[in-house]
């Protein structure tokens, strides 16, 4: 009993450390990729190839003065940054990195993921509302409506996967993909999932809540110092975990592609795939211009919703009558 608890705590700390490493070097990767795409060099001066840049950024943010806006709603103002980072950390509980490496194997892992990840909208909403300022409020409102619109698409695209697998446990989902990855069986669900994930993360081309040209900084305009850093930590941690979930759901988790190179351990494959999806998100951000807000909402309600509902019906039809 005690041994198990200690082992669990050790595992949690390792998972947490890996997540934080990914988050720190996610910011570095973002700047390097942005630099590469725009024909610049990117961070260069802190350490070899600028590798110490995330550490320097973190230290700088610790020592920055914190400005609490006059007439802001103090409790909400302080809770929002913590709420921004907590949901992303909670998701790592159910991510299976290898067949037997995971924090806990819940039989409702996918429901847990949906429930926990949708909490992050509260951080943005409350953060935008608490500042007693106009830009954050507008950014928060936009973000909330964007988030809930795409939450539906995300949830329904997961339904397509659960229909084939017959289980909500992420471990079962990956085991199901031993012979053939889900992305070949459910390409439409994969595309819908990726679009919804990028939109929920408020990343370009869907970064309307923090569109600089109209809303200054969006929901975190009034945040500074470490509170501001928490929002960014939350955003990148959310990117990492939704890449990891996409890997589990569609890209065969820890299985090697087409069973090549079987001597490479599964968790290495898992990390490589997660990083590739992460890189894909960066690539999209620095390639496409921002869409308009009515286009954004129309995309979710008028295009993705019917597509994903039809996908459920077609999947059901094939599973029932096609065998």
């Amino acid at each position: 009993m005690l041994e198990t608890v200690i082992l669990t705590i050790a595992k949690i700390i390792i998972f947490f450390a890996v997540l934080m490493f990914f988050v720190a070097y996610g910011t570095y990767a973002e700047r390097k990729v942005a630099g590469g795409i725009q024909d610049r060099i990117g961070p260069l001066h802190c350490g070899p190839f600028g590798l110490l840049q995330p550490l320097a950024d973190g230290l700088k943010l610790f020592f920055k003065e914190d400005i609490t806006v006059a007439k802001s709603d103090k409790p909400t103002y302080y809770i929002a940054p913590i709420l921004a980072v907590v949901p992303a950390i909670l998701v790592i509980a159910v991510i299976p990195v290898d067949e037997n490496i995971m924090i806990t194997d819940l039989n409702i892992a996918l429901l847990y993921f949906l429930a926990v990840s949708s909490l992050s909208v509260y951080a943005i909403m409350l953060g935008g509302w608490a500042g007693n300022s106009k830009y954050p409020l507008l950014g928060g409102l936009r973000s909330a409506s964007q988030f809930i619109s795409y939450e539906l698409v995300l949830g329904l695209s997961i339904v397509c996967v659960a229909m084939l697998v017959g289980s909500f446990s992420l471990r079962d989902v990956v085991l199901y993909q031993k012979d053939m990855w889900m992305v070949f069986k459910q390409p439409i669900a994969f595309i819908c999932y990726m679009i919804a994930a990028i939109a929920e993360l408020n990343r370009a081309p869907f970064d309307l809540p923090e569109a600089e040209s109209e809303l200054v900084g969006g929901y975190h305009t009034e945040y500074s110092s470490m509170k501001f850093a928490m929002f960014f930590l939350g955003e990148y941690a959310n990117m990492v975990v939704s890449s990891a979930i996409a890997t589990c759901l569609f890209l065969g988790g820890w299985y090697a592609p087409f069973s090549i190179l079987p001597f490479i351990p599964g968790f290495i494959w898992f990390l490589i795939k997660t990083f590739l999806i992460f890189f894909f998100m960066l690539w999209i951000r620095w390639t496409y211009p921002r869409v308009r807000f009515d286009q954004l909402m129309g995309m979710s309600w008028k295009v993705l919703m019917p597509v994903v509902l039809l996908n459920i019906l077609v999947t059901g039809f094939i599973v029932t009558f096609g065998r």
């Binding site: 949690i12 909670l90 509980a93 819940l106």
Partner: peptide, 18 residues
């Protein structure tokens, strides 16, 4: 232990971290 105990520990750790 119940599979939900790790989740509880993780919640504590996440809030503590923040």
């Amino acid at each position: 232990i119940s599979p939900y105990v790790p989740v509880l520990i993780l919640i504590l750790l996440a809030v503590l971290f923040g």
